[in-house]
Nucleic acid binder design. Sequence first.
DNA 1: GTGGTCTAGACCACA
DNA 2: GTGGTCTAGACCACA
Lengths: 123, 123, 123, 123
Amino acid sequence: MIKIDYRNKEPVFKQVQNELMRLIVLGVYPADSQLPSVRVLAVELGVNPNTIQKAYRELEISGVIYSVSGKGSFVSQKDNAQEIVREKHIAEFENAVKSAFYAQLTKQELVLKIEEIYSSKDR
Amino acid sequence: MIKIDYRNKEPVFKQVQNELMRLIVLGVYPADSQLPSVRVLAVELGVNPNTIQKAYRELEISGVIYSVSGKGSFVSQKDNAQEIVREKHIAEFENAVKSAFYAQLTKQELVLKIEEIYSSKDR
Amino acid sequence: MIKIDYRNKEPVFKQVQNELMRLIVLGVYPADSQLPSVRVLAVELGVNPNTIQKAYRELEISGVIYSVSGKGSFVSQKDNAQEIVREKHIAEFENAVKSAFYAQLTKQELVLKIEEIYSSKDR
Amino acid sequence: MIKIDYRNKEPVFKQVQNELMRLIVLGVYPADSQLPSVRVLAVELGVNPNTIQKAYRELEISGVIYSVSGKGSFVSQKDNAQEIVREKHIAEFENAVKSAFYAQLTKQELVLKIEEIYSSKDR
DNA sequence: GTGGTCTAGACCACA
DNA sequence: GTGGTCTAGACCACA
């Protein structure tokens, strides 16, 4: 379910982190459900366990998941997890808008782009 | 006129690059005007000349500026320069919108954020 | 009566141990009274029996409880049990004070914190 | 200046982290001063660079230090750094007091302990 | 030189 | 089995 692109500049641990956030927000992993273990996911993706652990730890620090030593890693209460992920994406979006503003792009252009992208995806 | 934030994760050469693009778009450096020399800017910012050179090189590769050996670096024809900068920011913005889409943010939320940011700045 | 928080970093066996100590000090389990059996408590808390056994074993080693093979686990003479628990908490408290000292916290701040916490609880 | 105790249960990276926090609070490393590089400290302590990096990263996440890729790691603005470290120690202290409260220790005992520890250290 | 990422492989506490 | 820590050693981008 998780895809890694090794040609991508984005570090592997970050890609894993983003993919997990995406799956959590989509409800594939509901609140308190168990995520694949560090080692299982490492084997599945052909990646070092440390790399996966780094992804998990960062998600834990930001409150999206919690891990119980000896038991596994679990999704935090949905409200929390989703909210945190949302905030991260909003922050990213705000930065892009500010850059766009400084680059003299107009409001209309941005809104149009949004329409374009949202209507191209089926929802 | 150019500000570098060393605590920022963004590499210094990238910050210099972005600042220059901003100043070009704003018309501070019009077409065919000369940019500060690599060495002058390096001293001014307290930065390694290699770092400035890297910023200039990337701007040259993308067509925003051109350099004349022995004379200096100059801004490309305005249409070109501005257009290229715009495209870069649009690409960045598109990425943010796609992430936002996957994170289940609604169109309305994004549009609202834009309104908010654009009205907070004086223009 | 015993509550386990799986999201807590503290290992389960330690939480069980602390909860039992708390209940003993409070007099819920008086001297020579029988504690719930390992298996019963394991089922009740939805926890592996090994985990409970570890908690009991550590309490026995430190002299808070004693176990009679084939009969069960019992609280040691109150003076002993309470005294041992007290000593443990004093040691923990001392460590915190030393850290606070090194971090330049003043005596006043610490005393104030104590006042605050003690007056917030009803006793 | 930094001491690691390998017999200690506390993980090495945590010990390094604590030692650094201590030195920062004491003013040995003032705001914006450069910390020893990851590799230098690793050699000095006879420890793997990854271990040091883990300590540095956690300090960075909590805002005590900031690192500039290619340049080094630096102490955050003193107010920030010190304040964060203080908060951490206060939280730790509060936990100890709460435990002590539940274990029936009296306010007087705790205050006495504080007096004892503070007067034993020269300041 | 400096931080950041990653692999391969080991060992530990806990459940 | 599960997360957590650590070593030895490599490679990369950046300054």
